[in-house]
Every structure is written in structure tokens, then in C-alpha cells.
Simulated assay, not measured.
Amino acid sequence: MSKRMEFTRKVKAQIIARANGKCEKCSAMLKIGEGEVDHILPCALGGEATVANGRLLCRVCHVEKTAGDIKAIRKSDRQRDKASGAVRPKSALAGQRRPKPALTKTLPPRALFVPVATTAEAGK
């Protein structure tokens, strides 16, 4: 897994200047020091600490985005573990299921189906 890369002060200053005091997601006006610089593509998914991969967000937008990032990171972790064989899949893959055996009816021998004589016929 990649190590988290923080933005340098210079890069943060460029991102803040580009945002011009507004949240870059919802356009809310931000007070000085209120915004949070965030990675567009998280470091865990291959994002870098560059101006192009950063944006200024309000606290509400940052919390929402971080929740979505965590889900995406966990999903990629699960996919990587399955692909590497570290975790066994819980069920068989769709293309590799065993076919069910064909159901065949086997009838008992005909001798067992001899009609039983009724009492009227038995007296003859």
C-alpha cells in the first residue's frame, strides 16, 4: 500500500489561491483558514500531492468525500486480496459452477405393480 503524501506548503498555497475563497465542490464562501485541502484521487488509489490532484473543500464536503474514498479504498483492497489469492472467494465463480446431475426416473420392476385381486374376484 502506498504511503500518504501530504501537500507541501507551496502546493497548498497554489490550491487555496486557485479556489479564491470558495469550496471547489459546492461553491460555499469560506473564511480564512476554514477550507481543507483534499486529494481528488486519494493517495491509496494512486493519487499524487500535486496542484492538479488537489482542491479546497468546506468541512461538510470533505467529510462526504472522505466517506466515499474509504469505501473505494476498501473495495480495491478486497479486489487485490482476491486476485492475489490472499483471501478465498466465499462462493464459486459463475462460470465455474458444477452442473447439477440430471434427474432420471427409475421405475421399479413391473412385478411389483401386479393388481391385487378384489374380494369378489377372489371368491370365484
Rank of each mutant, 00 (worst) to 15 (best):
I32D: 13
M5W: 08
R4K: 12
I15D: 00
G21A: 09
K22W: 13
Q14I: 06
I16F: 05
P42L: 00
I32C: 11
R18Q: 13
K12E: 15
V11R: 08
A19F: 05
E36Q: 14
L30W: 04
F7C: 07
V37G: 10
K3L: 08
A44N: 03
M5R: 13
E36D: 14
I16W: 04
C43V: 09
L41H: 07
K25T: 02
R18G: 01
I16G: 06
E34Y: 07
S27V: 14
R9N: 07
L41C: 09
K22Y: 14
V11W: 00
K25P: 01
R18C: 02
T8I: 00
E48I: 01
F7H: 02
A44C: 11
I15Q: 01
P42E: 05
R9I: 01
G47W: 01
G46M: 09
C43H: 12
C23A: 03
K31D: 07
K12C: 08
G46Y: 13
E6N: 14
S2T: 11
G46C: 09
E24V: 01
F7L: 13
A13I: 07
C26F: 10
R4C: 15
D38Q: 05
M29Q: 12
C43I: 08
K31E: 15
G35D: 02
I16E: 08
K3S: 10
P42D: 03
P42W: 03
K12M: 15
S27T: 15
I15E: 06
G47F: 06
A49K: 01
L45D: 14
R4V: 14
C43E: 04
G46N: 12
K22S: 06
K3E: 06
E34D: 03
V37Q: 00
A28F: 02
A49N: 05
A49D: 10
K25M: 03
E48K: 12
C23N: 06
E48L: 14
A44Q: 01
S27R: 15
G47P: 08
I15H: 00
A17K: 14
S27H: 14
